[in-house]
């Protein structure tokens, strides 16, 4: 029987600051190239988050739509939390990474409640952390591009999945990037982050397949093109 994974993309219109849609393209293609079927659901404001989502994707946002998304996200919170606890694989970039945390403190000290799914807190800052990034991770070097001013702090630093080689990472202070909790990968990295890091993309795919089918049995792909792009990216200045 052929295997199928259900990829749900949260707020593809509202929460998409530059190219995070690419993560969906990368996952879909890498599954298709291996003969795994992919069902894609675009989940916008007012849409139901599918119960059988295997992979949930989220990206960065515009300030102006953030409030609309926050209200809608509150309605999706319990289902998202349940999916997280059940081990659904999630990749939450930038704005969505922050929203999944416990709280966000704005520049004027306003305390905004987050979804409380990730054990993290974010403080607004006046530092724009912007530029090419590289992190050391359990899956090899991961390259990307960050563009944020929020500084995210993890309750438990061991949850970070990357050590900063280049860039600011979570907060520019502790040299850590991202958060891995249950199967949720939070990150500040665009690029899109999965596009030049096939090993990282496959880690997400593997986890989703293992959760659903008990094993991943991932066929290896020829990643020459991806790795060449990663190599160039790594050589570019910050």
């Amino acid at each position: 029987m052929s295997r199928v994974l259900h990829v749900a993309h949260l707020y593809p219109v509202e929460m998409n600051i530059y190219g995070d849609t690419g993560n969906r393209i990368v996952l879909t293609k890498r599954l298709e190239w291996r003969g795994t079927d992919v069902k894609v659901s675009l989940v916008g404001i007012g849409d139901e988050l599918p119960n059988d989502s295997d992979i949930v994707l989220g990206g960065g946002a515009q300030d102006a739509v953030q409030s609309a998304v926050e209200a809608d996200l509150a309605r999706k919170a319990s289902k998202l939390a349940r999916l997280a606890e059940e081990g659904a694989v999630m990749l939450m970039v930038c704005g969505m990474y922050q929203l999944l945390g416990r709280r966000f403190v704005t520049a004027d000290g306003q305390d905004i409640k987050g979804m409380g799914i990730l054990p993290i807190e974010t403080l607004a800052s006046h530092d724009r952390m912007i530029g090419n990034t590289a992190y050391q991770t359990p899956w090899g070097t991961v390259v990307g591009y960050e563009n944020h001013s929020g500084k995210t702090f993890l309750d438990d630093q061991s949850l970070a999945w990357g050590k900063v080689i280049k860039g600011a990472g979570n907060n520019g202070a502790d040299q850590l990037e991202g958060c891995l909790y249950h199967n949720i990968f939070g990150t500040y990295s665009h690029g899109p982050v999965l596009s030049k890091n096939p090993h990282f993309a496959d880690e997400l795919i593997s986890r989703a397949l293992i959760r659903k089918y008990g094993k991943s049995n991932l066929k290896s792909l020829d990643d020459t093109v991806e790795l060449a792009a990663a190599k160039t990216a790594l050589a570019r200045s910050r």
Binding site: S195, V225, A229, T232
Partner: peptide
């Protein structure tokens, strides 16, 4: 261009082959 390799990678994911990558 400086990101010739990135562009070839982008095209790969639309199932397109790049004959030459030349920065």
């Amino acid at each position: 261009g400086t990101r010739a390799a990135d562009m070839a990678n982008r095209l790969k994911y639309d199932d397109l082959m790049t004959a030459e990558v030349e920065p």
